[in-house]
Design a protein around this nucleic acid. Structure first.
Lengths: 177, 177
DNA sequence: AAAGTTGTTCAAGATTTTCTGAACTAAAAA
DNA sequence: TTTTTAGTTCAGAAAATCTTGAACAACTTT
């Protein structure tokens, strides 16, 4: 897909093959998600899919995404799987149509919650036990170093605890509605 | 640098050239930061630098980092610049030594605060004005679509406001100390 | 059956990001 | 002045990531 520069003063020319049947509004919204995804280090294709589903009035099938975003089958399939696992997309049954249809999950709480969990939870779990082991490695160091490292380790422990405490609070702020 | 698999059951063999003069504790701590950086999509070399400064008892010069992390001059220079701009590293004057020395800034509030700001602030600024423009693009669409998109846009507006509101609270939770 | 849909998987290609090292500037020491 | 040291910059190499498309599986329709 090619969501070119956008912005108000859009002086970009659609690339030759851009038969993309996307409306200007759609392009702009998708562009917004692409930018956001970039900030989170997430792949463009995933943002495109989510963006189009987000603006779309009705559920879309993979076919449609492939065609309208001018994207490969592989990317579409993988991207949808990723979004589904994340809980950012839901499947919808459309009577009389064999294809699976998708809609964007648009509740900030769910989105951010699952994303944060996916990104951090594993971490916290591991860090704690890892720090225990690290503490054991300070044997044959000078007293000064030993002391300093002990301090660093307890600092890391505090950071971890803070992280854990912050999460539920964050979720509450995002989800009250 | 080569912080190999680590963990308790470390069955990895140091690669041939690893004359790295790193202590096991250092390796483990650095490894921790590398993992964390990976979750944030930050380059490994930056994590290595911050990690070594974090465990180190005393300020280190670029030279030392290059040697101990077995890293190129370019990476060290750029990495230090990045960390300094972020406020994650501070320079220290060491009497009788011409070289600049560095220490890790280890206050969660400062670190997270600046990082969040760097990652999000620009965004929020732009998003708002962008949404105004997008609203103007819905002219020649069906009533249904127009309505749906209007809803989506106001949803995005709410998300943005939430984001803005969350930041200061977050900072407070991270920084009380 | 055979032919057509819908969708997944994955090796190879394309793209992006990161790292390196040599060339360079600036300043201090000899 | 000349030489050495400290540090930056940036083009190209190396590595990591993302995308594609062809092969395939499973299931419907003809």
């Amino acid at each position: 897909m090619e969501v070119f520069a956008g912005s108000s003063g859009n002086n970009a020319v659609p690339p030759e093959s851009a038969h993309s049947s996307l409306q200007p509004v759609e392009i702009e919204i998708i562009h917004l998600f692409i930018q956001f995804a970039a900030a989170l280090g997430q792949p463009r294709s995933v943002a495109e899919i989510y963006g189009l589903l987000f603006v779309s009035d009705k559920p879309l099938a993979m076919d449609t995404l492939i065609e309208r975003l001018n994207m490969s089958k592989g990317s579409a399939s993988q991207g949808l799987k990723y979004l589904q696992d994340l809980g950012a997309v839901r499947t919808i049954y459309v009577a009389g149509d064999r294809r699976t249809h998708y809609v964007a999950v648009a509740e900030l709480r769910k989105l951010a919650g699952r994303y944060l969990r996916q990104q951090t939870l594993t971490h916290f779990e591991e860090t704690d036990s890892r720090l225990d082991r690290i503490a054991a490695l300070t044997q044959h160091l000078s007293e000064d170093q030993k002391k300093h490292i002990a301090e660093r380790i307890s600092l890391l422990r505090r950071w971890e605890r803070t992280g854990r405490r912050v999460m539920p609070f964050l979720l509450k702020m995002l989800g009250g509605e």
